[in-house]
Amino acid sequence: MTKVLVIAEHDGAALNPSTAKCVSCAKQLEGAEIDIAVFAASAAAVAAEAAQISGVGRVLTIEREENDPAVAAILAPQIAALASAYSHVFGPSTAFGKDVMPRVAALLDVNQISDIMSVEGPHVFKRPIYAGNAIVTVEAPAESPLVATVRTASYQAAEGGNSATIESTNIDAEIPTHTRFVEVQTGQSDRPDLQSAAKVVSGGRALGSEENFELIYKLADKLGAAIGSSRAAVDAGYVPPETQVGQTGQIIAPDLYIAIGISGAIQHITGIKDAGTIVAINKDEEAPIFEVSDIGLVGDLFSIVPELTNALD
C-alpha cells in the first residue's frame, strides 16, 4: 500500500506552491493515498489551502507554538513520529525541505532520495547529479520508509478544486530547545516571487553595479517578471542572494527566462534547464549561454535592454 505524507511548506499564513508540486510528484506513484501535514502554531489558513489540492486525501494539522517559525531540529522528530503510518515522506527541494528532510531520514535510519525529477516505480526514481550533467535512476529498499525531496522545477503544481478532510493531530515527540530562531531578513519587493513567476529577467556580472541593475528592474516591471541573477552578480553585491539562480541558488522553470550579461556557466544553466523559453543577451557571440538559448541576441546590453524595454510598450 503506497501512502505518501507530504510536508507542507508555508510561512504561517500561506501555503508555498512547492507543496502542490510535491503532490504532483506523489500522484505519479500508482494508487497512492496522499496526505499533507501542516506544522504550525495555528494551521487553519494554510490547511484550508492545502485541502484544495487535487489528489489529497487528508490534511493533518499539528499545532504547537514551537512550530512557528519552522526550525528543522524542531520539526524533524515530529515528522519522523508521524511517518510510521506512511510508506513515503516527501518534502520540496527548497531551502526548507533540504534543511529538514535529511534530518527526518536519519531519524528513520534511511538515506534520502534528493531532488526527484521523475517517478519510475514505487521505489525507483530519477534524479540529477553533477549539477545536472548526469541523471541517475536510483532504487530505494522497499522494506524501509522512503524519504525524498522533490525537485520542484520538474513538476507543475497540482490543481485546486478539492476539499480534503482536515484533521488535527497530536504528536508525542520530544522537542529540542537547542536551536532558536532569531530573525529573517527578506528583500521587501512587490515583484513576483522568483520560484513561481511565469517570467524571470536575470542579470549577471556584466551589469557592473547595483545602480545599473535598474535596467533589469525596468524591463522586469514591464514584463511583470521576477528578478534573477548569477552568482557573480550576487557576490559583487549588485543584488541580494535570494535572487541567485543555479546549482547553489534557486532552480526555476518559468515560461520565459531572459539572461542578460550572463555567460552561462554550468552551475547557472542547472537552474534554468526546465525553463520554457530562454532568451540570452550577451556581447560575446561565443558565450555558452547561447548553446542553451531559444532566442539569442548578440550585443551590448546597455543599449539593448533600454531599447527592448521601450519596445514593449
Binding site: 531551502a95 537547542h178 536551536t179 531578513q185 541580494p240
Partner: peptide, 12 residues
C-alpha cells in the same frame, strides 16, 4: 541563505 532571504538562528 534561504529562499526568501537571510535567516538567523542561534544554536547551542
Amino acid at each position: 541563505e534561504v529562499d526568501i532571504g537571510l535567516e538567523t538562528i542561534e544554536i547551542d
